[in-house]
Design a protein around this nucleic acid. Structure first.
Lengths: 331, 331
DNA sequence: AGCGTGTGTGCAATCGATTTCTCATCAGGA
DNA sequence: TCCTGATGAGAAATCGATTGCACACACGCT
């Protein structure tokens, strides 16, 4: 592998000049520049980013740490980040923490030791120490999707409570009174906010919030399935279910299908997050849609701004959610 | 940010000793080691990976360059890679080339300049120059899912031709004679192999391979939709369709649904690749299943081996596919 | 006592780029 | 002709870690 010195020798100039030509910040005699670019082409030289990063103490990589790579919510969001990143001159690398705090911790450590230029993270726990580590080391950070108590970082969220309220109110308007909720992990802000929205809608309609109709699961398909089973087996069966994320909605549906219960006539269902190919699922699914791509885009914009102006107050962006009524909730 | 020299001063030893304690390759007086670890803890020191990478000229990052992050096939594969990577002491970063050769080229360049310890790539074109660039620079590479002509690299594939043959034969056995194929891009080995399997099955059964029944699309949902439209509008409508990947299968289904055609009674359909939540789609989809997780796992194993023993002949692993018969193909 | 051996530490070179500082060169004005 | 200022190129320091080499010290043997 050729180094900058090889190029310099080949072009009959100093390494400093090669560097200047490559970076283009300073003026160089066109004749020399020409010789340098020729030498670069001839030797197939590509600059060693590691050495450059060491000297300039910065990289052009953004790390995006997501909690579940298999959840379409995140993949769509990543597209939003990528589009902004590439136009800002950054490359995006994705890390999958798999809802596992230990893996998350490792990836944060890696982002720090690898001197990443920025980090977008959807925390898989409310364990704030790791994220604060990033903040302390002046690494630009944007927290996404999930709110962290006690962390003063730029954040992009969606209006979870409102979305859940819309979903629940819709189910009430359809004439349901026994409405269950399959909630997410208690320690995730998205989960608690959605649960709050559900409870708020019930209260608003003069209905009681019944703990027997609430199940806490893990935002995974399996968890949704088990929660639905539990709802059907224990206590009076609900007329309708609000599931607090996409994968759990799928799990709940699978449970209902497997038991031969008809949706929505036996049990109506509304999910949170959109689901790819929702049109092909029968019945089609009523869901609370989030602007996932936009979430990513805004997060990336915040990160880019934070990179150029590290100081300044943390911003908190909340994007709207909306109810997409389809077949699974209308009788 | 504390450096190794800060730690050394704090512990009253030389930087060399700190390094030796941190890496643990060489023996150090336990008393000194104790002082060093104490100093590390006290200063919150974390070693600068960039400097280390420069000196040792290697990193502990594997880049996985996939052609479509939104395709569940790849996300499942990534899990397989991650599991092996973490037990081999590597971290995985994901790059999304988005079926775009230019982006792919950029990510390969980034992998090279960032001195990645290894690369797993599912090429989005048959433009072999970039991949050869990796090989020449002795960066361990494993090509995955798609075969590249003229590239002598470790490769993990599935038996595409056999899978397509199974799918098509199954449709023939169900009594269909006019069987269409929605094929992928001509330049991708997966696409051509699947088309070959389709043609082979037809020939074997004494049926003609009719170009009017073949459409080339782009492995995307939209492409599948358009191809299906074209098949229905031009020429005699097919009795059955074999779609060469998961997203195009979805697109084709959506087209059929939208036109009010019943599956499988009007048109039977078999897809390639599994589809998440296939159980919830009505009718349930017959597909050719691939061992996606295993593909990732094997690729990662090859990469790990190549890292430790750079020389040696390139290996080519072909994993089996199998037909999962469900509702969309059986009358 | 003297020498050889082994153990462990520190010094300093090194990885490959960037960047400050210094200096040579040249143009233009007095 | 000489001086000044501008311009641009090269020499060398630097980023932070690793590691070959030399050396100091302790110990054991003759």
């Amino acid at each position: 592998m050729a180094t900058i010195y090889d190029v310099a020798r080949h072009a009959g100039v100093s390494a400093a000049t090669v560097s200047r030509v490559l970076n283009g910040h300073v003026k160089v005699d066109p004749a020399l520049a020409e010789r340098v670019t020729a030498a670069v082409a001839q030797l197939g030289y590509r600059r060693n980013a590691v050495a450059r990063n060491l000297r300039t103490s910065q990289t052009s990589l953004w790390a995006v740490i997501v909690s579940d790579i298999e959840n379409p919510f995140f993949t769509s969001m990543v597209r939003g980040i990528e589009d902004v990143a590439s136009s800002a001159g950054f490359s995006v690398v994705l890390c999958n923490s798999d809802e596992n705090p230990e893996k998350e911790s490792n990836y944060i450590a890696a982002a720090l030791t690898e001197q990443m230029a920025g980090v977008v993270i959807s925390p898989s726990s409310n364990h704030v120490d790791d994220v604060n580590l990033l903040l302390e080391s002046e690494c630009p950070v944007v927290v996404i999707d999930r709110e962290l108590q006690g962390v003063d970082a730029d954040t992009v969220l969606v209006d979870n409570a409102h979305g859940a309220d819309l979903a629940t109110t819709h189910l009430i308007e359809q004439g349901n009174t026994r409405i269950a909720c399959i909630a997410g992990p208690r320690w995730l802000s998205t989960a608690t906010q959605r649960l709050d929205g559900y409870a708020h809608a019930l209260t608003q309609a003069g209905l009681a919030v019944d703990d027997d109709l609430i199940r806490y699961a893990d935002f995974r398909e399996r968890g949704g399935y088990d929660a639905m089973s539990s709802l059907l087996d224990e206590g009076a069966a609900p007329q309708a279910v609000f599931a607090a994320n996409n994968l759990m909605t799928i799990g709940a549906m699978e449970c209902l299908v497997q038991r031969g219960l008809a949706v929505p006539s036996d049990v109506a269902i509304v999910g949170f997050d959109s689901i790819p190919w929702a049109d092909l699922i029968r019945p089609t699914l009523t869901t609370v849609a989030q602007p996932t791509y936009e979430v990513g885009r805004r997060a990336a914009q915040l990160l880019a701004r934070r990179s150029s102006t590290p100081d300044g107050p943390a911003e908190r962006v909340v994007l709207p959610t909306s109810l997409q009524v389809r077949g699974s909730s209308t009788r």
